[in-house]
Design a protein around this nucleic acid. Sequence first.
DNA 1: CGCAAGCTTGAGTATTATCAAACGAAGTGG
DNA 2: CCACTTCGTTTGATAATACTCAAGCTTGCG
Lengths: 257, 257
Amino acid sequence: MIEVKIGNGMAVTDTPVAHIECFDCPIRHRAVCARCETDELEALEAIKYYRTFDAGQTVIWSGDRMDFVGSVMEGIATLSQTMEDGRTQMVGLLLPSDFVGRPGRESAAYDVTATTQLTMCCFRRKPFEELMIRTPHIGQRLLEMTLDELDAAREWMLLLGRKTAREKIASLLAIIARRDATLKLGPTRGRIVFDLPLTREAMADYLGLTLETVSRQISALKRDGVIVLEGKRHVTVPDFDRLLGETGDDSDGGMPA
Amino acid sequence: MIEVKIGNGMAVTDTPVAHIECFDCPIRHRAVCARCETDELEALEAIKYYRTFDAGQTVIWSGDRMDFVGSVMEGIATLSQTMEDGRTQMVGLLLPSDFVGRPGRESAAYDVTATTQLTMCCFRRKPFEELMIRTPHIGQRLLEMTLDELDAAREWMLLLGRKTAREKIASLLAIIARRDATLKLGPTRGRIVFDLPLTREAMADYLGLTLETVSRQISALKRDGVIVLEGKRHVTVPDFDRLLGETGDDSDGGMPA
DNA sequence: CGCAAGCTTGAGTATTATCAAACGAAGTGG
DNA sequence: CCACTTCGTTTGATAATACTCAAGCTTGCG
C-alpha cells in the first residue's frame, strides 16, 4: 500500500495494480476508447495508469485540481453536489466503462466517491487533450457517451421533479435490476435477483429523499410482495413487470424514445 | 402562410423567412457551427432552412420522426417529458444558439415547444450527419455544447431534488435575470430588470412544482421585497445579490466549479 | 359586454421531512 | 469470550412543506 496525497490534502490509500494491456481490457468495447485503432490504443497506453479505491473513499472533491480523466474499470462510483448547509444530491452513477472528468476543465465539478471497491483507468489530462485533437475517434465516442449521459440525466430530472417516493424507489430498483441482468446476460423479465450497490443514504441522495423515506418505501414494497429482501442488500424481484408497473413509467420501462 | 403537416398529423403554421447568410448570422459564434471555416459554412448553408413557430406551438412531439436537427435562432423553446397520467417535467430550456436534436437518432426523445415566437435554423438530418463525419469542427463544438448542457442538467437535478419551493423560484429568476443581463450586456449585480418568458405553469413544469405553489412563492418574494412585479411578467430585481441569497447556492451563484 | 386564459388566494389534506429511539451485524479491546 | 462501539438500518410520533380542490380576480379579445 502506498500513501498518496490528493488535492485537498486528504490521505488516500492507493494500491498499485497490475498493468492490463488495452487490448485485453474488459471495458474496451464500451469505454471512451471503444473506437480507437491499434495505434491509437498504443498512444493511450502510454499515458494511462490505474488507481484503486476502497468502498467509501473519495476519488476527488469538487473544486480540487484534476490532472487526469479516466474510465471506471470495475466497481461503482457516484457523482454528487453538496450545498453549503450540507444537503447533497447525487447527479451521476458511474458504472464500468463510464467516463470521469471533462477535457479542458482544470478542476473537478463534482465530488466523486467510490461506493464499492473501485478500479479506474486514468489518463493524464494534458496528453489526453492533445491526443483528442489528433484522434477524432476519441472525441466521437465521447460525444456519443455524453449524449447518452444527458438523456439519462433528463430521465432523472423527471424522476426527481415528478415521481412519488414509491415510484422513485421502484425506478431505482428497476434500473439496477436491468443493468445487473444485462451485465450477467440474464433475462430482463420475470424473476430477477441482484445486490444493491448503494446504502440507504446513497439511495436517498440519488432520489432526492431522506434515508428514512427510502427505508419506509422499501419496507412497503417488501410488504406488498413487489420485492423480497434477504439481509439489507440482497434483493429478489419475483416479477419484473410488476416492479415496472410501480415506476410510473410506461410499460417499456421509461427509456428515452 | 403555408400549412405544414408534421409527424403526428398536427397542422402547424410555418412562415417562410428571408434567408440569412451564415456569415451574417447573429448566433454564428455560439452555435454548433461556431468553429466552422468559410467552406464548412457553405456546406451547411446548402442544407439549411428556416422555420418559425408562434408562442405555444409544438415544434415536435416525443416519438415523432425527426428529419432535421438545428439551432434556435431567436426566441425560446422548451424540452419536456410527459408521464402517462399527464405529469410533465421540463428537462431543458432552449435559448438562441442552443442545439435541438441528436445526430443519429431517428425520432424525437422529448416534446419541443415554442414558448415565445421562435425561429429555428434547421439542417436536414442525413446530410448533416454526413457532414459531421467530414467536418470535425462540428462534432467538436457539439461535444462542448453537450458537456455544457450536461452540467446544466446536473445543476438542475440539485434544484429538483433538494431545494425548497422558494429556493427553486429564486434560482429560476436568477438564471433568467443573469442570462438576460448577459445578452443585453447589462450588469449582473445590483438592479436588474427583465421579462419572464414562461407562464406560471411552464415555470411549475420546470421546477417540479404546481402552478399554485409557483404563484404563492412569487407573491412571497414580492411581499418580501426581493422582487418587484409590474403586471405578471415584468420583473425588477432591486438587489441581485439579495436574490442570489435566496437561491440556496453559495454566493458565486452556483455555477458548476 | 362576456368570455377565456392566465393568475392569485384560501382552506383543507397528504406526502414527506424531522426528530427520536432502538435494532442487528460487524468489529474492537479488555 | 463477552461487553462495547459503530454503522447502517428500521420504525414511530410529530411537524412542515407542498399539493389538491375551489373560488374569484385581472387582462385581453371577439
